[in-house]
C-alpha cells in the first residue's frame, strides 16, 4: 500500500514572503503516496500558506513546488487530481448545499455520489437551505463531505471542522479511515486537535514560524520522549548531556522532558528512584513549539527520516548542546 516510488509532493527551498513578513522560510520536504499526513503547528505557523502554495493558490517567492511531478500553478493536469477543503470556503451567494454537491462531480473524476448521500445523512445536512443560513458546523460538514466523496488522489483538509460537534468529528474520522482503507490516497490534514487525530496519522509535519520543525513517522514520534520526574539533583544527574525538550519544577522537585530513552536507560532511571511518564504526540508538539527563543534552535534530534536534508542540516549545524538547553529551558 505504501508507494515508495516518486513522491506526490516535492518541495525544495520554498520561501514565501508577504512584504517584510517571511511566512515560509526555506522549507524542503516530500509527501509520499497513499499516506495520511498531519500538518501541525500553532496559529500563524504557516500551515495554510504551505497548502496554498501546494495547490497553486499562492506564488512562491523562491524555491520549487512539484505536485505529481509538475508545478501546480495554473496546471490543470495537477489540479484535477487535487481537492483542497479550506477552513472558510466561500460559495456563490445563492447556493444551497445541494448545489455544491451537484457541481462537485464536474471537478472530481472519482466523485462517489452514493458515498456523498451517506455522508449527508451521517452529518444530517439540510440540502435545500441557502448556504448562508447554515450553522458554522453545517458549513464545515459541506466541506468535509466534498473532501471525502471527491476521493481526489491528493486531498487537503485545512482545519476542516470548525464548529463541528464531537459526534460529527468522530464521524469524519471514522469515514475518512474506512474510505481511505478501501481507496488509498494521499491526505494532508491540518488541525489543532492533535490528540483526536494522532492515531489516524502515519506521518507528521510540524511547522513553526515558517519552518519545518519535525518531519517524522507518527509512530516513531510517539514514545520518543519521556518526562522524568523526581528530586532535582537526581533528575539533573540523569538528564545531563541528553536532548532536553522542556524543563519544569517546584521546590526540590524537577520535571524534565527528554528524547530518546532506550529501555535499559529507562530501567536505570527507575532504579534511581525517578518516575518516568510517556509523552503524547500532542504534549510533545506543544512542548516543542512553546518557547522557541531565537531562530535555529530547533530540536536537532527531530530530524526527518532523511527527507528534510537541507532544513535539518541547518538546524543541526546551528545548534550546540548548551545553547539548545538554554533556549528550551527559558520557560521553567
Amino acid at each position: 500500500m505504501i508507494g515508495t516510488a516518486s513522491p506526490v509532493v516535492r518541495v525544495d527551498g520554498l520561501t514565501k514572503r508577504y512584504g517584510k513578513v517571511t511566512a515560509i522560510d526555506d522549507v524542503s520536504f516530500s509527501v509520499h503516496a497513499n499516506k495520511i499526513y498531519g500538518l501541525l503547528g500553532r496559529n500563524g505557523a504557516g500551515k495554510t500558506t504551505i497548502m496554498q502554495l501546494l495547490t497553486g493558490q499562492q506564488f512562491a517567492t523562491s524555491g520549487t513546488v512539484q505536485v505529481f511531478g509538475e508545478s501546480p500553478v495554473e496546471n490543470a493536469r495537477v489540479l484535477q487530481q487535487v481537492c483542497f477543503i479550506k477552513e472558510s470556503q466561500k460559495y456563490p451567494d445563492s447556493f444551497r448545499a445541494d448545489h455544491v454537491l451537484a457541481s462537485a462531480p464536474w471537478f472530481f473524476a472519482n466523485w462517489d455520489a452514493a458515498f456523498a448521500d451517506r455522508l449527508i445523512e451521517d452529518f444530517r445536512l439540510p440540502l435545500n437551505r441557502p448556504i448562508k443560513k447554515l450553522s458554522r458546523g453545517q458549513l464545515s460538514a459541506v466541506g468535509v463531505i466534498v473532501g471525502l466523496a471527491s476521493r481526489a488522489p491528493l486531498t487537503f483538509f485545512d482545519e476542516p471542522y470548525l464548529g463541528l460537534d464531537a459526534v460529527a468529528r468522530q464521524i469524519f474520522y471514522d469515514r475518512l479511515l474506512e474510505d481511505y482503507t478501501e481507496h488509498p490516497r494521499t491526505v494532508i490534514l491540518s488541525t489543532h486537535l492533535i490528540d483526536e487525530v494522532s492515531s489516524l496519522l502515519e506521518h507528521v509535519l510540524v511547522v513553526d514560524e515558517g519552518r519545518i520543525l519535525m518531519d517524522q513517522d507518527a509512530d516513531d514520534l510517539r514514545g520518543s520522549a519521556s518526562t522524568v520526574v523526581g528530586k532535582r539533583t537526581d533528575v539533573d544527574a540523569f538528564v545531563a548531556g541528553r536532548d532536553i525538550i522542556s524543563r519544569d519544577g517546584i521546590g526540590g522537585l524537577a520535571s524534565v522532558t527528554v528524547t530518546g530513552l532506550t529501555e535499559s536507560e529507562q530501567h536505570v532511571a527507575r532504579a534511581a528512584g525517578l518516575e518516568l511518564s510517556p509523552v503524547s504526540l500532542q504534549q510533545l508538539i506543544v512542548q516543542c513549539t512553546t518557547s522557541r527563543a531565537g531562530a535555529g534552535t530547533g530540536t536537532a534530534d527531530f530530524r526527518g527520516s532523511g527527507r528534510t536534508d537541507t532544513t535539518s542540516r541547518t538546524i543541526g549545524a546551528e545548534t550546540d548542546n548548551t545553547s539548545k538547553t538554554d533556549a528550551w529551558s527559558t520557560r521553567a
Binding site: M1, I36, Y173, L177, T181, S199
Partner: peptide, 17 residues
C-alpha cells in the same frame, strides 16, 4: 490489518507495522 485499523480507529499502515 484493516479490521484492527477500524476497531482501534488507527491508521492501517500502523496496524500493519
Amino acid at each position: 490489518t484493516n479490521e484492527f485499523a477500524a476497531f482501534y480507529r488507527i491508521n492501517p499502515a500502523t496496524a500493519g507495522k
